[in-house]
Design a protein around this nucleic acid. Structure first.
Lengths: 206, 206
DNA sequence: CCTTGAACTGAATCAGGTTTGGCTGTGGTA
DNA sequence: TACCACAGCCAAACCTGATTCAGTTCAAGG
């Protein structure tokens, strides 16, 4: 028995396929609107087989959210690494945040739409663990930006203003892009990055 | 028979009470997490009585969203009315958007969390009608801000930059407040309004 | 009184996520 | 070679919570 979800991926594992299918479905049709069974269909397995890999539909969602958070946290660190000034760091961080493929866009949208899920505790042990993990990563991402702002203020590159509000606002400005941005729309990814970077700099510059 | 929802409020109608209870529950615990029946309990009626007023749980949610959109659209119009310059208009609009009571904060949060619901069509007629209505109001609100930006650019008060991206970003900056703001927290409503207004002005000013 | 319709209800029904119990095939090992 | 453990899978039963059914109550108007 047991719905002991796998931690070490076996060679025949369909975990990655399920995640991929779930991201597409959740991203395109919305989480509550997609039937868990339809994800199974997409992968080509029975509905109950899903429970071999995830404890529940929500657990799968939390996993997707964590993975997106993980990506954006590490991308930030990598981008900022070795930049000369806070201004350059900011440019690099924005590029890292916005220069992503279509799957990451979907993940970002999914993450944003269900951020509130991280607020209240989960019944199940594994779900709760995943939630805690995601919360930690959120803190990490927020901390990354807060730190950047504070470095900028300390160095005099950025104006001395409430760093907390500033960093939250920056994050909101960046993430808001996914609300309206569509691949192949009037504005290219490059355009958006350029605009967003300048907007952020206008916001913080001394 | 029929679940013909009431359009003209009768004197014994509990519609307003239901909405009030639903806003509290959806706002505090989240829409998917609150049981429709518990809303009925809160009001003191049987679960099925809810269907006399709303076609479904989602229909109630859509109604709440519309009402919040309506409020913010008209508040914007009223605030901007009669201001001398686009800069003054912006100040007034931000004040109108952020100077709201606790119930409106909840409604704003509910609205944001379920914006994606407006994307895909609904099965039921009345739900779909309410969705269309809400979409129209969203367009209206976005249009309000876009217009403001364009007026500002035309008058030379604001710098000439992509008005579409600018207005979306402004909206995001304002709405992001509800993600972290809590009544009685370290920052007063006044503080936040002040900070946000200045941030927006820095963003658009020529 | 009698009728009408808003307001309401308890008892089904239904949909979808989840649990149960068991089957299959592969890789390691005695 | 025989066997074992366990990842991977499934059909059918189950449970929860939203929704529908088939009425009942009650206040106002004629």
């Amino acid at each position: 028995m047991s719905t002991q979800t796998v931690t070490t991926e076996g060679p025949r594992s369909k975990r990655a396929l399920i995640l991929r299918a779930a991201i597409e479905s959740f991203g395109d049709d919305g989480f509550e609107h997609t039937k868990w069974a339809s994800v199974a269909d997409k992968v080509g397995i029975g509905q109950t087989a899903l429970y071999h890999y995830f404890e529940s539909k929500v657990h799968c969602l939390l996993t997707i959210m964590s993975s997106e958070l993980e990506r954006s946290a590490t991308a930030f660190a990598a981008a900022v690494e070795g930049q000369a000034t806070p201004t350059d760091e900011l440019r690099a961080a924005v590029k890292a945040a916005l220069d992503v493929g279509p799957r990451e866009v979907l993940q970002a949208r999914i993450l944003q739409s269900h951020m509130d899920l991280l607020a209240s505790p989960r019944q199940s042990e594994r779900e709760e663990a995943e939630r805690q993990h995601a919360r930690e990563l959120v803190r990490q991402v927020e901390h990354n930006w807060l730190d950047l702002v504070e470095r900028g203020i300390a160095s005099g590159d950025f104006a001395a203003r409430d760093a907390f509000q500033t960093s939250h606002m920056m994050l909101a400005m960046i993430l808001s892009v996914w609300r309206w941005y569509r691949e192949g729309g009037a504005l290219s990814n490059e355009d958006v990055r350029e605009f967003t970077t300048e907007a952020l700099l206008r916001l913080v510059r001394a």
